[in-house]
Amino acid sequence: MKKNILLYMAIISFVSFKGNAQDSKIYVTDKISDKYAYVDIIKTYERIAEKGYKSEDLFKKIGDSYYSKADFDKAAEWYCELFDISNDLEPEYYYQYAKCLLFIGQVDNANKILEKLKQKSGVIKKKITIK
C-alpha cells in the first residue's frame, strides 16, 4: 500500500514538474519576442523609391497600402507614379486611381482615367458577328 502511495506521489510530482517546465518555456518565448521591432513597410518602400528605384511592383505596393488605409491623397500620388511607368495595368488599378482622384477633388483627371479603362476593356471585348 505504501509503495502505491509513493508511486502515485511520484507520478503527480512528475506531472506537476513537467507542467511548470512548459510554463517556463512560454515565459522565455515571451521574453524573446520583446526583442523584435515593428517595421513600417510603407516608409521603407518610400525610402527605396526616393533613392531612385522605380518599379511597377513597388508603386503598386505603396499605392495599395495607402488605398487600403483610405489615405487617398498619398495613394493617388503613388498611382500617378505607377501610371507614368506603365499603362498596361490591371483594370483594378484604373478604378482605384480614379476613385482616389475623385476623393481628392480631381474629377476631370478621374474621368480621363475611367475613359482609359473603358477603352482598355473595349479592346478586350470583341464583337462576335455571325454570318
Score class of each variant (00 low, 15 high):
1 M>T: 08
6 L>T: 08
6 L>C: 12
7 L>P: 13
8 Y>Q: 11
8 Y>D: 13
9 M>R: 15
10 A>I: 05
11 I>T: 05
12 I>R: 02
12 I>G: 11
13 S>C: 09
14 F>G: 05
15 V>M: 12
15 V>E: 01
18 K>E: 14
19 G>E: 15
21 A>P: 11
22 Q>L: 15
25 K>A: 11
28 V>A: 10
29 T>N: 13
29 T>I: 14
30 D>N: 15
30 D>V: 08
30 D>T: 14
30 D>M: 07
31 K>S: 15
31 K>D: 09
32 I>R: 09
32 I>L: 05
33 S>V: 01
35 K>S: 04
35 K>G: 07
35 K>H: 11
35 K>E: 12
38 Y>M: 05
43 K>I: 06
44 T>A: 11
45 Y>K: 01
48 I>E: 00
50 E>V: 09
51 K>I: 09
52 G>F: 02
55 S>K: 10
55 S>V: 03
58 L>M: 05
58 L>S: 00
59 F>R: 03
59 F>K: 07
64 D>R: 06
64 D>T: 06
66 Y>R: 03
67 Y>M: 11
69 K>P: 07
70 A>P: 03
70 A>F: 10
72 F>V: 02
73 D>H: 13
75 A>M: 00
75 A>P: 01
75 A>Y: 00
76 A>E: 00
76 A>K: 01
77 E>I: 13
78 W>M: 06
79 Y>A: 09
79 Y>M: 08
79 Y>D: 03
82 L>C: 08
83 F>V: 04
83 F>Y: 06
83 F>I: 05
84 D>I: 02
85 I>D: 02
86 S>L: 04
87 N>Q: 02
89 L>T: 05
91 P>R: 09
92 E>I: 15
94 Y>E: 00
98 A>G: 03
102 L>C: 11
102 L>M: 12
103 F>W: 12
105 G>I: 08
105 G>W: 07
106 Q>L: 15
107 V>K: 14
107 V>M: 08
111 N>W: 10
112 K>Q: 10
114 L>K: 04
120 K>I: 01
120 K>T: 07
120 K>H: 06
120 K>S: 08
123 V>K: 12
125 K>N: 08
125 K>A: 12
130 I>T: 14
